[in-house]
Nucleic acid binder design. Structure first.
Length: 940
DNA sequence: CAGTGAGCGAGCTTCCGCTTGACTT
């Protein structure tokens, strides 16, 4: 028997690999790439040495050489590549079987680049994992689609440039660690825009009537309700009759409470009768099978799952072989799935519930890439939820998928829709006041629905966010039939602001705008939440004021980038590239350098990203992060600052805005309330027995502190020793809620004289870097705050007799690696403020995250040190006013102050260092900015 | 948003889309 050739097939997912192997049989080895195998470098640590120092190394895209990208195999992908290379060695043929969409094609191309196969290579593509589809695909391979790869690279490069060029603008202008991106920035803007609508919204109130009517003893049901729709020949106002500012649209009667009450009373005695009955056939079709977004929506509404949770459970079900792939934009069912669904319908519900022909669903998603099937129960026959043996979340999600899939192949639900018009005339005109006038006839309506054949509703009812589906059961009624009013009740209503986005509704909106992909919807929400752009209140996504500031900056200075049509336009261009009609360079140049001169076809000239990110002087950070509340003369602003968001009044009084307060609740009144509480919210500890001045504990920029409240009108002139109140931070061991007057007096008594005379007097006190001793201009740190009070003169002198850095420099190395071959100096690993680093006593190099203290070798250390020496000393930073100094700011209510303070004395990992560092660097800032680092610094 | 003195390894943060890892005998 001749040797059968051995073929290596590579797909994306291990689960898929196992599945396919079963359909291909012997002679095929199926492996997986586990997603993308290489990418642009994410950080400086990943940039290959030969590119370091290039101005474009930071983004990994050489914009001056036709946007050439550099690709690296990240540490966690190296093993995958190694494995695939080994497998390839024993193979006679390579089948690249990644998805047929843009990303899948690119993965195949990257695999080729990395594996460099010497055997024949084929590209095979399938859209469903069934035996037929796989065998068909392997029998008809195609070539790699270079144009599709070009489209993916364009997408990748553009996203990188957007993200890595715009984010630094935010670091400089707003806060470090912020981010911007094609997807997240628009997602954030959607949420901010909705909040703006809510803030601009003005509620309208209106009243109407609900009549409970008796249709006579034979009727079933005997009683039903009808709602007032008109008076004489005018319509009555409903919610939709008002605009968002509470103004009435069109010619309608608006009833207030008094008018509604008068009318209700008059109608209770009036004769009602049926004016007309309309019956229309009603049919309802089942919804399409699930794709990622609809699964997330329904799991959210019916099961209360977050998008994250839905995807996690779906992944488990996929890996367990229960459902098909969960990241898909397709609603197509394979023939196998249609058969399985129809079998289930026939056996569980009967032939009546089965349509003559299979239902076919087309994707409504623009530019859907349809690399997969819809999400459905896996296999050629569907296991019912009851048979599955699954439990908990898995059971519930599987049941949802099963029901939706089966229902999608069931018959329509049919029935009748009835609309009944009813009139009631008062014996004489009723005066309803100035706005409504005098009226005589009131018109009511009732609608109802009867389902005569439930069809797919037997299996699955799609839920809805819209409560408009409110219907009543109606009796049989005929024209002119008299009705007896049992009760006529006036009901008040108010228009509501547009609802906030929830996770699923945001995802649905993003999909509609063609922003994001099935694999990223859940992570988009994670990103904007972790950046503090958005937080959740119940199910609602609420934007922060930080999001308002960032969105405003982007809208004003990067307008095109946060346009809701930006991605959709981009998709069109990518499509053209994929079809080979457009060169990617045109698209990238246009985006980065702006439209080239002359050729503009009536379209207004726009600056490219390159120009925009360098025009920092035009961006007024202070103005962008200030929001005026209420009317022009309200005098109250909200400001997004380094220590969080606060409100400020005309007298520059300030108060923090609680982190969980939605922007639309921060009215002028609420702000005044916060200010009042902040002003009067100090806890009074008592009076200083000596001076009779009140001592309070208060929260400040550096944490809780005690201070004196000096009488306002105290004349400062007459021999007063101090114009300012004494203040002192609490010790870390103290709590603002429990600190006593004695504690406060002790703190305010500082500095303590420890001993000595004249020039040599030693004092003990608390400072920026923690507790310390001072003698003249010389200082020494103290081991604890308590030591400020307990240190004796002898101990103090002992401390001063020792050199300054004692105790800190004594830290023992973590490891000793031996002599550096470069210079023979001993190399050791040490732990420092910025994490572990290697040093030869002169040059220091921080260990990259990819190296561990345990695993680092002498060779590796020597490499790191050599790289560091080659770079030369770090350029001194130029001091810049404003934003550059806020390095440690974090919006979370954090503890930055206390840890910062502690760091000086005890902890090596303090945050205080950077703040202090840049302050002192400001003096050394004269030297010319030669290094790359100084080119993009904020000046203003 | 209160304000008091050091001397230290500074260097990194960030995008969107694919997908689940797991060193060596």
């Amino acid at each position: 028997m001749a040797d059968t050739p051995r073929r290596l097939v590579i797909v994306e997912s291990p689960t898929k690999a196992t599945k396919i192997a079963g359909y291909l049989g012997p002679g095929y080895v199926v492996e997986s790439s586990r997603g993308h195998v290489r990418d642009l470098p994410t950080s400086a640590a990943e940039v290959p040495a030969r590119y370091k120092g290039q101005p474009w190394a930071r983004t990994g895209v050489n914009v001056d050489a036709d946007f050439t990208p550099i690709y690296v195999v990240s540490a966690d992908k190296k093993a995958t590549i190694r494995k695939l290379k080994t497998d390839l060695k024993d193979s006679d043929e390579l089948y690249l079987a990644t998805d047929g969409d843009r990303e899948g094609e690119a993965i195949a191309w990257h695999l080729l680049q990395e594996l460099k196969p010497t055997v024949p290579v084929r590209r095979m593509v399938f859209h469903e994992i069934t035996r037929d589809a796989i065998q068909e695909a392997v029998a008809h391979p195609r070539e790699l689609d270079e144009d599709l790869v070009q489209a993916q690279e364009t997408r990748r490069i553009l996203d990188r440039l957007y993200g890595y060029e715009v984010s630094p603008v935010l670091w400089k202008k707003v806060m470090p660690r912020l981010s911007a991106g094609r997807v997240q920035s628009v997602a954030t803007r959607l949420i901010v825009d909705r909040e703006r609508e809510r803030m601009a919204f003005r509620a309208a109130s209106y009243w109407d009537l609900e009549a409970t009517l008796d249709a006579g003893a034979e009727a079933s049901p005997r009683e039903f309700t009808a709602r007032l729709v008109g008076l004489d020949d005018r319509r009555i106002a409903q919610g939709a009759s008002f605009d968002s500012l509470g103004r009435v649209k069109g010619d309608v009667v608006v009833l207030d409470e008094a008018a509604a009450a008068v009318l209700a009373a008059a109608l209770e005695k009036a004769p009602f009768s049926v004016a007309g009955v309309e019956a229309k056939p009603y049919t309802r079709r089942p919804a399409a099978p699930f794709r990622t977004t609809t699964l997330q929506q329904e799991a959210g509404r019916k099961l209360g799952f977050t998008t994250d949770r839905t995807m996690r459970i779906a992944q488990e079900l996929y890996e367990g072989g229960w459902i098909t792939y969960m990241r898909t934009d397709s609603v197509t069912l394979s023939d196998q799935a249609v058969d399985a669904a129809r079998d289930a319908v026939r056996s569980l519900y009967g032939a009546d519930y089965l349509p003559d022909r299979p239902r076919i669903y087309a994707s409504k998603v623009k530019n859907a890439q349809e690399a997969h099937e819809a999400i459905r129960p896996a296999g050629a026959s569907f296991r019912t939820p009851a048979q599955s043996g699954l439990s908990g979340d898995q059971f519930r999600l599987y049941e949802l998928v099963w029901q939706r899939t089966v229902a999608s192949q069931m018959a329509d639900a049919t029935g009748q829709q009835m609309i009944v018009r009813i009139e009631a005339s008062c014996p004489q005109r009723v005066d309803l006041g100035e706005r409504a006038g005098a009226v005589r006839t009131a018109r009511f309506a009732a609608s109802g629905r009867t389902i005569t054949f439930p069809g797919f509703l037997k299996a699955y009812v799609e839920s809805t966010d819209d409560p408009a589906e409110r219907t009543t059961r109606l009796p049989r009624l005929s024209p002119d039939q008299p009705l007896d009013p049992v009760r006529v009740a006036a009901e008040g209503h108010a228009t509501k602001p547009p609802a906030r986005f929830t996770e699923p509704s945001l995802v649905a909106k993003l999909e509609e705008l063609d922003i994001g992909r099935p694999s990223t919807y859940a992570s988009i929400i994670r990103t904007i939440t972790s950046r503090d752009y958005v937080f959740k209140r119940g199910a609602a996504l609420v934007p922060t004021w930080l999001a308002f500031a960032v969105t405003r900056l982007l809208e004003e200075h990067f307008t095109a980038l946060v346009d809701y049509d930006f991605t959709a336009d981009l998709e069109e261009q990518l499509d053209s590239i994929a079809k080979g009609q457009v060169d990617r360079l045109e698209v990238l140049r246009d985006f980065y350098f702006g439209p080239q001169d002359g050729q503009a076809s009536g379209r207004s000239a726009r600056e490219g990203l390159h120009e925009l990110t360098r025009a920092l002087g035009d961006i007024d950070a202070r103005a962008l992060s200030t929001f005026h509340l209420g009317d022009l003369d309200s005098g109250v602003d909200v400001r997004v600052g380094r220590y969080g968001t606060y409100v400020e009044d005309e007298d520059a009084h300030r108060a923090n805005v609680p982190e969980d307060m939605p922007p639309d609740e921060l009215t002028v009144e609420a702000a005044r309330e916060l200010l009042a509480r902040a002003g009067g919210g100090d806890r009074e500890l008592g009076l200083d027995p000596q001076t009779h001045v009140a001592i309070v504990v208060r929260n400040g920029r550096f944490g809780p502190y005690v201070t004196e409240v000096l009488p306002e009108d105290e004349a400062p002139a007459k021999g007063s020793k101090r114009a300012k109140p004494r203040t002192a931070s609490l010790f870390r061991s103290m709590d603002p809620a429990s600190v006593t007057l004695d504690d406060a007096l002790r703190l305010l008594s500082l500095p303590r004289v420890v001993g000595g005379e004249g020039e040599d007097v030693i004092t003990a006190q608390n400072g920026r870097y923690g507790p310390y001793l001072k003698r003249g201009t010389d200082t020494r740190s103290l081991p604890s705050e308590e030591a400020i009070f307990t240190t004796t003169f002898e101990q103090a002198e002992e401390l001063f007799s020792q050199p300054k850095r004692r105790g800190r420099a004594a830290a023992a190395p973590l490891r000793e690696l031996g002599a550096d071959p470069a210079n023979g100096r001993p190399v050791v690993v040490k732990d420092g403020r910025f994490g572990p680093y290697v040093t030869d006593g002169e040059t220091n190099a921080t260990l990259p995250r990819t190296d561990s203290v345990e695993a680092v070798t002498l060779e590796r250390a020597a490499e790191l040190l050599a790289a560091k020496r080659a770079k030369g000393p770090a350029p001194k930073r130029r001091g810049s006013r404003g934003t550059a100094k806020r390095a440690t700011a974090k919006t979370k209510k954090a503890t930055t102050k206390r840890t910062a303070k502690a760091s000086g004395a005890a902890g090596p990992k303090g945050a205080a260092g950077s703040a202090a560092g840049s302050a002192s660097d400001a003096r050394a800032g004269e030297r010319p900015g030669t290094a790359a680092g100084s080119t993009a610094r904020a000046t203003e």
